[in-house]
Write a protein that binds this DNA or RNA. Sequence first.
DNA 1: TATTTTTCTGCAATCGATTGCATATTGAAA
DNA 2: TTTCAATATGCAATCGATTGCAGAAAAATA
Lengths: 343, 343
Amino acid sequence: MNAKKRITIYDIAERLNVTASTVSRALSNAGYVNAATKELVLKTAAELNYKRNTLASNLRMGQTKTIGVVVPRINQNFFSNVIAGIEDITYQKGYNLIICQSDEQHQKEVKCVNTLINQHVDCIVISVSADSVSYQHLQNVIDQGIQLIQFDRVAEELETLKVINDNEQASYQAVCHLIEQGYKKIALLEGPQNLNIFRQRKTGYLRALEKYNIPITDAFIVENAWTKELGAEATRKLLSLPDLPDAIFASTSDFSALGVLETATAMGIKVPAELGICGYSNEAFTEITSPSITTIDQFSVFMGKTVANLFFQEMENNDTSVTPKSISIQPELIVRSSTRRKS
Amino acid sequence: MNAKKRITIYDIAERLNVTASTVSRALSNAGYVNAATKELVLKTAAELNYKRNTLASNLRMGQTKTIGVVVPRINQNFFSNVIAGIEDITYQKGYNLIICQSDEQHQKEVKCVNTLINQHVDCIVISVSADSVSYQHLQNVIDQGIQLIQFDRVAEELETLKVINDNEQASYQAVCHLIEQGYKKIALLEGPQNLNIFRQRKTGYLRALEKYNIPITDAFIVENAWTKELGAEATRKLLSLPDLPDAIFASTSDFSALGVLETATAMGIKVPAELGICGYSNEAFTEITSPSITTIDQFSVFMGKTVANLFFQEMENNDTSVTPKSISIQPELIVRSSTRRKS
DNA sequence: TATTTTTCTGCAATCGATTGCATATTGAAA
DNA sequence: TTTCAATATGCAATCGATTGCAGAAAAATA
């Protein structure tokens, strides 16, 4: 690599017979600088193609104007949308993003978080990985005086800023909708229960059943079915029970719901007539399957924007004033063909 | 914000009655350090919860072990997959990623690139935005001695490392396939011609027609139809021509192809019997539409890995030895129901 | 034991930008 | 003309980690 030496403020200073101080002041628009000098500096900087060394600047200033984001999977729709939302806001404020992927592995997550701390980011935004158990690394972030914002999948016991979906309510609504459509034996595909979001979705499911006085059937609750394949497998199992369910709520994801749909279709079971299907996330494809899949929209881009805005708000009133520590976004049930039996 | 002072090597040094030099050497495993001293340093560092200040380190060392990535849209499947691929490799090597989004706007792209230069990233990976015209900002990157790697959408005139898809060949194959299936009047939905990829795809289309001695019908070539909506609109236009096409190659994206499919279906035109449809990108949904859509897989994650590996290779043999400057990945035509007329 | 080599540690400079303090210049007010 | 404020610039320290050089201590060799 051609490691040419970069132009620094000293080069500019030398050329103009002033000191670096003056150049610095001219470039950063701070303090007193003669108008003519300033113009000269600016002109010379442009000529020499000067680029400020952010490292040096940040080191001196003690802040990096950088936000670190840790998500389980960058290329998962929900997360990439959240990131896009964050980026939208932070870009406007002149902040940078460093993005890390935990790959759903606790150990990698810890490593990512530590790297971000070392990088002196001003804030860490995280959605914890599925196999997280300990949260020492997050406590660490707080101890280092770095703003920590959790979103979606959060460690509830940690006192941090949080942006979450009201999963329980959304799930409750979805199941109520199924019941109102005449489904009576509703199965639940649930996700890893160490994640708050999946616990909440389960609670919503149970609450809806309770409201309508529908007994809970243990066999209808299937653990850990959050990929298309696992959804398909769960469906095969459910549909071979002596007492069949008449609806399946894939609370884990739309992919899981897709697995359900494909399996049911392959088995010659009619959706929604014989089996109702509801997913979670409002992935783009849910609209174009046949039948289209009822699901829950999480407003992911908006969620990202909310996270970023929360950070900037918190920055501004650093007077430890009491700001709401947890923002809850109301997801929306999107009813489509896969659950519509009544007009 | 609680800006607690962080522990530095000086704090450790003071506590142990040695100098920062020794602490530094102990922590970075470089130079001579007494084994006992080293152990003490390590122990104390852990106790005090010391985190190295990467800013200071990078400033001194002149390298950041960071790669900047600029893409048009973070949350577009192809790009988020490429990023995931890059991340996979760079993570293993202990490198960080800074991700920026140009939003398909040239001006924002320039700003992103400049920020990355300021951040002293070791490498910039970019796929240019749709409305790019000038490439001065990229020339800048090179001039600053930063490794530049272009992928997918590249400015061909710039002499940089490139990782591209063989778009022309893929497009050629797709159209040949259509012709072999008996389609004779094939329309093309093309993308912005200032992007190399769309020019290449058009060339492939023309080459295929030529091979089979099919005359070019200007009315069958529709400009700028790269969203679902634009694809739908183009389809309405095409299907109201006096002389109808019998196939549409949405060379821009699968979304465009989806627009075609939906419009055709709504108009009561049978796919693939009356109209063949081929998309581009192998988005997840192409598999689950009915009929499923023939498309081209770009191996996006692999592409990301290739980009990252290329960077590290280039790093290692910095002796300006001649490495291939351009890697071409062969995309794969995935034939599905939307174009299958013959068994 | 004397000499050379190896190991250990400290000193001080460095990376590039920023900033408090001091000094110098200019201009305005008394 | 004197006095004070405002403006302009320089000096030098600072942010935290790294490293070449030098001297001291320990170990190895003659």
